[in-house]
């Protein structure tokens, strides 16, 4: 291709060979300026958000870590038992996974509780923000066509890209980790809430309208209940994404299982890293089973067994 480059240079069309500097869109500095502006102008708002998240996180973390492991173990197992509608197989699976975490290394149990609390806070935030957004876009096509591409973007972006603005806004620690996790994990709840509401049979919506239900009655009495299996599926996916992101976010200062993996790698201690990795998988299985079981139980109830 050398001849083509030379030719273009000779006829004075060098701009077609090298990107012309003048065409550069300074996206990079725009974003930096924007973040800087956010911090200087709205620093207090971020601090307030940060503080309230910290308080909640601290409370949850202290509860989970303060609880004797055996109590915690029985609590989660019992939760699995009731939520799954008394399914023995699933409950045993959850119990075995939980027990194995401590079995691998007692220290990992404590780390798992830290990870769990960060994940819980992030997931709750995702649900609290995600479901209303999902409901909103299901009702407004215009808004939806704006939000859906944004969600696509959020999901294709490499996950640690969110860490940097998170640090810039909130500093190091658990709060930026939660912030990054929420951004990374929120798309499924929004998507599946939207989808669930849209999939509600239009004939049922008509029946509801024809009987004189107002919007709120229709939403609470028909749309949300019939969309619930889908919404729960979204919550399940969000939980899983949150777990994986919490691990990645340990790079910016959350503690927990992710830190163990990171330390293991830094010390070339493959055993330690792998142990923590297995604990993450076990925790993931527990969370997945529990969140899915509830959706299944609901679906069974709706279909009349």
């Amino acid at each position: 291709m050398e001849w083509l480059r030379n030719l273009l240079h000779e006829i004075g069309a060098g701009w077609a060979v090298e990107w012309p500097k003048a065409l550069n869109v300074p996206l990079n500095s725009w974003i930096n300026d924007f973040v800087e502006w956010l911090i200087t102008e709205h620093g207090q708002a971020f601090e307030a958000v940060s503080n309230s998240i910290s308080v909640v996180l601290l409370a949850i973390e202290q509860t989970l870590r303060g609880m004797p492991w055996l109590v915690m173990f029985f609590f989660i197992t019992a939760l699995a038992w009731f939520i799954s509608g008394r399914r023995l197989g699933m409950t045993i699976l959850v119990a075995v996974c939980l027990f194995s975490i401590g079995l691998i290394d007692p220290q990992l149990w404590d780390n798992a509780m830290v990870t769990l609390s960060v994940m819980l806070v992030a997931t709750i935030l995702c649900i609290v923000i995600g479901i209303p957004v999902g409901l909103l876009i299901s009702a407004q096509d215009r808004l939806r066509s704006l939000v859906i591409p944004l969600l696509d973007l959020m999901q294709t972006m490499p996950s640690f890209v969110y860490l940097i603005p998170a640090i810039m806004l909130f500093g190091l620690g658990a709060v930026p980790a939660i912030f990054a996790t929420v951004i990374y994990a929120i798309p499924p709840v929004i998507r599946l809430t939207d989808l669930g509401i849209r999939l509600v049979d239009s004939g049922l919506g008509e029946a509801c309208d024809a009987m004189g239900a107002n919007r709120i009655q229709k939403l609470l009495g028909l749309q949300i209940p019939t969309a619930l299996p889908n919404i729960l599926q979204g919550i399940n996916q969000t939980t899983m994404l949150a777990l994986s992101m919490v691990v990645i976010a340990s790079m910016i200062g959350t503690r927990g299982l992710g830190t163990e993996v990171l330390l293991g790698l830094q010390q070339l201690n493959v055993g330690r890293a792998l142990e923590a990795g297995i604990a993450i998988v076990l925790l993931a299985i527990v969370m997945d089973r529990i969140t899915q079981a509830y959706g299944r139980k609901l679906l069974r109830a709706q279909r009349g067994r």
């Binding site: 004939g203 008509e206 029946a207 309208d209 024809a210 009987m211 004189g212 107002n214 019939t226 709706q302």
Partner: peptide, 29 residues
């Protein structure tokens, strides 16, 4: 909304019963 509540109601070809609530709750909706 009031007009639909008091004056006119509708029966549908494909029934359009709410699947998540019982028969009597459907009737009383």
């Amino acid at each position: 909304v009031n007009f639909r509540r008091s004056t006119v109601s509708m029966v549908f070809q494909r029934f359009a019963l709410f699947p998540h609530i019982t028969v009597w709750e459907n009737v009383a909706y």
